[in-house]
Design a protein around this nucleic acid. Structure first.
Lengths: 218, 218
DNA sequence: AATTTAATAGGTATAAGTACCTATATAAAA
DNA sequence: TTTTATATAGGTACTTATACCTATTAAATT
């Protein structure tokens, strides 16, 4: 089954030089067809109309950033793999990118062959990150998996409060927790309230979110 | 302060060809000194006696695997950065490697320049992974169950329903989702209802629980 | 042309969680 | 001994989510 009829790729970067260079590299590949956009708006328009399989987006762009394009694409449930091409090794930017489902994250400082590699990897359904970025990912992973980054305030909690958190993390309802511990549901609610105050949490599901994200740390 | 007096590196691989090639590449770098070992035992012996800063270990080796060397080094609390050089993109092997504190993971199929890059990154205190490997880490991070758990019925969902699930997994409230997508909260509620029916979920937090646990699968 | 699916939006009722209070018994600490 | 921290329980008001309903529009299928 030859399904690679042609991979249609939109390239969005406000620097003509990078855009042209990238286009030249990609055009030398068989089965790849490219379209250029010089800002996010143009890219999004093309994505909506032509439905390319892949979007290679510069993050920093006028009118609409690559980040905004990726978010919008996700909101509209458009089936496209997004690859970010950026100059900055910014950790929080990277984390946000992962949150909105970006499949590839390549640094401009890297070799041109890397972007080809990235495209092939993403087409196969995998993620691709520049190795310099993988450090962030490991840290991110370790943050979720270890109590070393314990500055969250969990140490302020009493034993029963920690126990409560454990059960909240299992997504048990207050009623279920109350029954399991043979205490009143009001007690459970009070514990939750107290925990929220100690951890400075507020709003719907705030505690549940915290509990799930830190479930390894208590 | 010139702290790079010389980086001492031990290379352990049972294939002389790879060993020599690697040595040649590294010796062309300034400030790097190499020692060769043709199996894990030799490598460990050298590590104990000469305390090199970095060990580049093939995982598959006779007598003692690179994996065993890394574990032993960790047990003896020897201060050394371990880089695995391997042929296999094996996910469980990679996960185990992360658990024993390996700092770099490079595939042999990759360019020789990658290993140089890896060494510099590791020396600076960061992690380095071949991009093909970072995919594993992302999956690990997304706390995925295997693709076998894919039988959960997610394939029954429409694109907007999957999108809804993504946002539910981020623990956004219906109100927040509605605002972000510029649709009525009732639409959001209906989507949730439909998803619950399709996935045969019911009860408090059932959807949220599902979404969080399967957040890698959509 | 008729039917189905997807996305949209509304109604009504109930259940669950959050916010902010008070209050008591007990054990540990100042 | 008085104070403080912890675990317990209740009240009240409000917000959010769930469970079933109906219904319209557009797009895709039959």
């Amino acid at each position: 089954m030859n399904k690679e009829n042609k991979i249609l790729i939109v390239i969005a970067d406000d620097h003509a030089l990078i855009r042209k260079g990238l286009k030249q590299v990609l055009d030398s590949e068989p089965n790849i067809e490219t379209y250029e956009a010089e800002n996010g708006e143009q890219a999004l328009e093309f994505i909506r109309e032509q439905k390319p399989q892949i979007a290679i987006l510069d993050i920093e762009m006028p009118k609409m950033s690559g980040f905004d394009v990726a978010k919008q694409v996700q909101n509209e449930s458009i089936n496209i793999d997004v690859i970010f091409l950026t100059m900055f090794k910014d950790e929080s930017l990277f984390n946000k990118s992962m949150d909105i489902g970006v499949k590839g994250y390549v640094l401009k400082e890297n070799t041109v062959s890397e972007i080809i590699n990235c495209i092939h990897t993403v087409v196969k359904g995998s993620y691709y990150l520049s190795p310099e970025i993988s450090d962030f990912l490991i840290k991110r992973n370790n943050r979720l998996a270890s109590s070393a980054t314990d500055k969250s305030g969990i140490s302020l909690l009493t034993p029963s409060e920690k126990n409560m958190l454990r059960m909240v993390a299992m997504m048990k309802t207050n009623q279920e927790i109350a029954e399991e511990l043979n205490i009143s549901i009001k007690t459970v609610q009070n514990h939750r309230s107290n925990i929220c105050n100690k951890l400075d949490l507020s709003g719907a599901h705030a505690l549940l979110k915290f509990a799930v994200e830190h479930s390894s740390g208590f």
